[in-house]
Design a protein around this nucleic acid. Structure first.
Lengths: 341, 341
DNA sequence: TGCAGGAGCTATACCGGTTTATCAAACCCA
DNA sequence: TGGGTTTGATAAACCGGTATAGCTCCTGCA
């Protein structure tokens, strides 16, 4: 016998298909004795549900989707996504729900994917990353009635369910640490201000500056690429009054920045302190190793999966789950600023 | 009307469900005029196939799977997978086939996933990576009769279809380049000898050594981690007779090795030349930038997808497609060896 | 004793497609 | 003009599950 169906099991057990379905799904309708017998036979014949058949009948496919809209070139280097992905999977595997992953070039393509997924019933819900300020995906997903969870963007009124960490607190912990070391000129090499998390970080720095007595604290936007990270660093270090510390919004940019500093003969951490807003092997591979903000990205993904499953089960409620604040891991790239010449 | 079904279309067009199915799938059975009309109506009602229903009827799910068995920690840093993935997707998107991705801890878990996928009919085929010497996955997939394509491992007799590049030629191009610069002590920090590609590289070096007049050319196995890469480098550089060049089997290990060299005061490329067997932003971010072997990983993935689709369509034939040889990109980390003291 | 009610199970419709058996009309050639 | 083949279409079975109406017993209670 190839793949047994519930009809085969029903036959063997001398009951109806319906009874088998009840037994296998753990719902009432059969006696414990019969259930036991059916389960044993199913096990014996090594029966497994046919996903398509189940999807057709139950109108749920036990599969969720995740689209990442970034050029592949920059994707691989950031451990962030790999960890996030593993976390999401671990959250899903408990319910043995599978994950569809797609990497696309831009948001337009991403939305197109959601439309297709929705109309073809390929996924029960989706996980969103990289929330932008007026994100077009939100309305689209609502229109499609596709359950969704946003990672990283705390939603306001009428927003989608979300899992988020406090970017504001995170930025504050970095700046306060640097200020305590004595830094007063702290530059921030930011990401795209279009991203909500980037905006929150920029605002946090701006708000904290007066209180901490910062003399100069510019936030400079980039596209997250190593190239722009390097270019901005070069510009910053060429100024007459250069910063004594730079905070980078990603580990890749921080590494690029460190390279520029070395090349220009600026010693780290002697002349310049460097902090990365994301932690990974990358920051640890460097010499000096970079002080970085560590988040439990794996857990982040896991929680996103959990919230998504709850949302699929009960679409009415909107969960907004806050994750633990990230903590600063101090390594060798930060020190008190040089004494003024 | 919510999502129209072919029955709705049949109704509107005044034909039977069967006719609509024929028309939409471009198979004979309807006249051109009727086909045209049906297609127009389907378009108008913005009909899309219900993937589960189609899977149930046609017993193919238009979805392929890929399992990566590596600890998530090391995954993200290597751009290799991100590029490969994008390539695979691009190869699949033409036929609008979707991809299921799973990251697991080890091969046992990977095989378990294949079993599940096969019995639940979740995928039409799978793509394998990291082929080992006596790979248990091969037999398992054959037993499951699940179409598969192996990436990177040229198969022998009775093997699975594959897409591969010539690791041997690649290693030779590196070593010949170094030998031409004058290097005679070339160490090779390899991956796990368990991997077929690693073995081929080790053998290539061993075979070429006499011809190139190498005095010393050890291949040292690692687990691909930055930690072991660093440890081996430290050992190599502490020897009385240390190598004048080191070839690393991955970009991450090369970067780790560079760090160790700097820390030990060994100048690169003055005292030591470094070559990475994989290229990425990582190698370009370093100072000095690393000489590395560049492969078109994206295209690699695209071809794997193509071969898999052909294999699914015609399981009998076994395709073994060779991709272009990788080329060496020379950067700043290689130079002639120091003159003997 | 009679009847309501629930437990345990069966039979069957249904999900949205694909595939096949069947059939009428048109076409072809001798 | 008549018999065989091709064309265009239909109706119904089918894929492997889930959901539901309904049937049969058994139990409990008035």
């Amino acid at each position: 016998m190839v793949r047994p169906t519930i009809a085969d099991i029903a036959n063997r057990a001398g009951v109806s298909k319906g009874a088998v379905s009840f037994a296998l799904n753990g719902r009432p309708g059969v006696s414990d004795a019969t259930r036991e017998r059916i389960l044993r036979i199913a096990e014996q014949m090594s029966w497994r549900p046919h996903s398509a058949a189940r999807a057709l009948g139950a109108s749920r496919v036990d599969s969720v989707g995740m689209v990442i809209a970034r050029p592949a070139r920059t994707l691989g280097v950031e451990p962030f996504f790999a960890h996030l992905l593993s976390g999401v999977q671990s959250g899903l595997s408990a319910e043995s729900i599978s994950l569809q992953l797609l990497i696309v070039e831009d948001t337009a393509a991403e939305i197109e994917v959601y439309r297709r997924w929705a109309s073809e019933h390929r996924v029960d819900g989706v996980i969103l990353v990289d929330l932008t300020v007026k994100d077009p995906r939100i309305d689209e997903l609502k229109a499609l009635e596709l359950p969704a969870v946003v990672i990283g963007g705390r939603g306001g009124k009428g927003a989608l369910p979300s899992v988020w960490a406090d970017d504001r607190e995170a930025m504050l912990s970095i700046v306060e640490y640097l200020a305590a070391l004595g830094h007063r000129r702290i530059a921030h090499v930011a990401g795209t201000p279009n991203f909500q998390h980037t905006q929150r970080r920029i605002r946090a720095l701006r708000d904290a500056a007066p209180r901490l007595g910062l003399v100069d604290s510019p936030s400079l936007p980039t596209d997250f690429s190593d190239a722009e990270g390097a270019a901005i660093t070069r510009k910053l270090l060429s100024q007459a009054q250069r910063p004594t510390a730079i905070v980078y919004d990603s580990d890749v940019m921080a590494v690029a920045g460190l390279g520029v500093a070395m090349e220009m003969g600026v010693s780290v951490p002697g002349d310049l302190s460097i902090v990365a807003f994301d932690d990974s092997i990358l920051t640890q591979l460097m010499h000096p190793a970079l002080t970085a903000l560590s988040r439990d990205t794996f857990d982040f993904g896991r929680q996103a999966a959990e919230v998504l499953l709850e949302t699929i089960a009960a679409p009415a409620q909107v969960i907004n789950r806050r994750t633990p604040d990230p903590v600063l891991t101090v390594r060798e790239s930060t020190a008190p600023p040089p004494r003024p010449a």
